[in-house]
Write a protein that binds this DNA or RNA. Structure first.
Lengths: 80, 80, 80, 80
DNA sequence: GTGGTCTAGACCACC
DNA sequence: GTGGTCTAGACCACA
């Protein structure tokens, strides 16, 4: 679980964020229904801008790993 | 007459509340002098937080559709 | 031109914000097409939370004094 | 520190609430700058209605023991 | 980094 | 118990 994005790898920052979160879900560290840290906290954790976090969120929601609830937070999706 | 805000439509919740109430007034379902349900009941009816209802009220009062009376209720405005 | 909302007056903060902006428009200090300070700057200027500024914006847009453009800014409306 | 108002004493409920809070301030259990429990919690604590708590608050603020901050809470006043 | 929308939950004035 | 006002802080769309 990297504390920050590794810029030397060449991979886009948001890709690394996506992979890290997907890994955590698959490893069971993040479980269905869990609330993710706030966007602001994630920017600090990964050392990237809010835009990078948002791009990662767009994909993770499209892939149905996460569900955003306005004004509340972002949650790990539960199985249908 | 929608029972609740439709989040899929993309339209802001408070806009849907405004439109729904204006429609009811124009359709004569709500008539001048009528008392609206309490703010708390409206939150339940539309499935939104009180702030959303309040923002709708701010606009509806600015547009002179409604008149609020503290401690009593919100009423449909009478014609000038 | 008040620097901040006056809580002693009894008037709601958002009403004071509305009146101050309307006054500035009517006095020609804010002219059609002018860009307002950012929402965050206005909160600092008036000493209120963002919600108070937003409630003022809802009414000022309903009354067609202002036009908001997402990602750009809020502008004084031009005459019809 | 009574958990609830004693209705047998004949003293108005709000008087007992006032006295209890003043006692706690004088005894140093509540200190300048401390935040009081929310109104809702106080109603539960003293076993009285919100109106009774509000009446107590009106007097305690008039006597400058407490200071209310809208949207935040009620605080024990600091010395001038 | 801007505007926009929303939740949650305080206190306040009035009936 | 009603409406009214406010704080704090989320996420979201756009540039």
């Amino acid at each position: 679980m990297p504390m920050a994005v590794d810029w030397r790898s060449g991979a886009p920052g948001y890709r690394q964020v996506i992979d890290d979160i997907v890994d955590q879900i698959k490893a069971g560290k993040l479980r269905p229904g869990d609330k993710l840290p706030s966007t602001r906290e994630l920017t600090a954790h990964y050392g990237v801008s809010e835009t990078v976090i948002r791009m990662a969120m767009v994909e993770l929601k499209a892939r149905q790993f996460l569900i955003g609830q306005k004004g509340k937070g972002v949650y790990v999706a539960t199985l249908d």
